[in-house]
Nucleic acid binder design. Structure first.
Lengths: 200, 200
DNA sequence: GCTAATTGCGAACGGTCGTTAGGTTAAAGT
DNA sequence: ACTTTAACCTAACGACCGTTCGCAATTAGC
């Protein structure tokens, strides 16, 4: 089933490609990502790179899927230890903000960048972005509902409105980190989240 | 000074190019904008298009400058009638939100999209984006300071923090409009702005 | 050991990219 | 009327794009 490398090594190559593609796409966008540059960076041929995916769009979808899984492993998975409701949500946004600052290079949330890049381009990539964002949104609203049931938030809280504002805080943090490289951004974002989630 | 068209007509051509470029760049980004497609849309030759600017980067900067001026004419200029402080700020964000929904096509704020596109690409375009955002940020913080002096906001208000959160609301509105096409986005955004600017 | 399967490469494809050179046309300056 | 100037064109440049073909190489299954 494999040529010069074992099956495990084949998967490793695929993973190596996606890793490098994520780095490239972080600065140039998922559309600005080119197979030629990817091949150069990996010291492979273009055919060798694209052979693992079939087309550039399939590669884009694979990169996006990898980014989504990284996000899931990094943010919601690390918040499962916290008590459901405002505590878990605070923890999740905390992890997200940390994640934004940690990413190698210039930082920022990859999914947020791609969401902005493809917001006006219909197609499978945009659909995948919408899926990922819907999943995250469902996570947030579910935790908010739990918080209301637990009386951590006022019973008449508008869940959608609060999710909207929390999302805005994350977007502002992303812009401050990625564009302005403001070292105070994480602190500001955490303060804003706390103000939204901790009843006054 | 002009060839087959008067000087006024020459400027009109330039303006026509920028108009079309703004439309193209709204969906494909400022980097995804290509001279060939622009020429096709305008029924001109590529040389005729780029001749007005010299290079693609110069064209990008011209498009960006045009977008910045449109924003200025549309948002801060329409708020000058309002009383300085929270009233003017509310009005400005109101206008901005309206502007996002009105834009032909899929809507959204062009400057916000470009800010995201170029946040990791150093160069003149990124610098111009930073300038525009700094100018807007200065406008917001100045009005916030005025509001504090006028006792419309608590005297110990953290101006930078509040500007950060207001910016987040605008970013959330932009994403909801452009990506999710959520018709409730303007309402949510206005509600969030009011909650931030109207003292409790 | 032989065959089958698969990875990756080299090379090429048609197409588009941004840019440039040179020529044509028409208006402006004199 | 003649020259200058500027807008716009056609044509072409080299570079790179995504994709495809056929081949070499190597491992897995038999």
């Amino acid at each position: 089933m494999s040529p010069r490398k074992s099956v495990a090594e084949t998967a490793a190559t695929r993973s190596r490609i996606i890793d490098s593609a994520l780095t490239l796409a972080s600065t140039d966008g998922l559309e600005g990502l080119t197979i030629g540059r990817l091949a150069t960076d990996l010291e492979m041929s273009k055919a060798g790179v694209i052979g693992h995916f079939g087309s550039k769009e399939a590669l884009q979808l694979a990169v996006l899927a990898a980014a989504v899984e990284r996000f899931r492993l990094r943010v919601p998975a690390r918040a499962v230890g916290a008590r459901p409701g405002t505590e878990r949500l605070t923890r999740a946004f905390d992890e997200w903000i940390d994640y934004m600052t940690e990413v190698e290079g210039h930082g920022g949330c990859f999914l947020t960048s791609v969401a902005s890049e493809f917001d006006g381009r219909p197609g499978p990539v945009r659909d995948a972005v919408l899926d990922a964002l819907a999943s995250w949104s469902a996570y947030v609203t579910a935790e908010l509902s739990t918080a209301i049931e637990a009386r951590e938030l006022p019973p008449r809280t508008d869940v959608e409105q609060l999710a909207f504002e929390l999302n805005g805080v994350a977007l502002a943090a992303n812009q401050s980190i990625q564009l302005h490289r403001d070292p105070q951004a994480p602190t500001r974002a955490r303060r804003a989240v706390a103000r939204l989630l901790i009843a006054p």
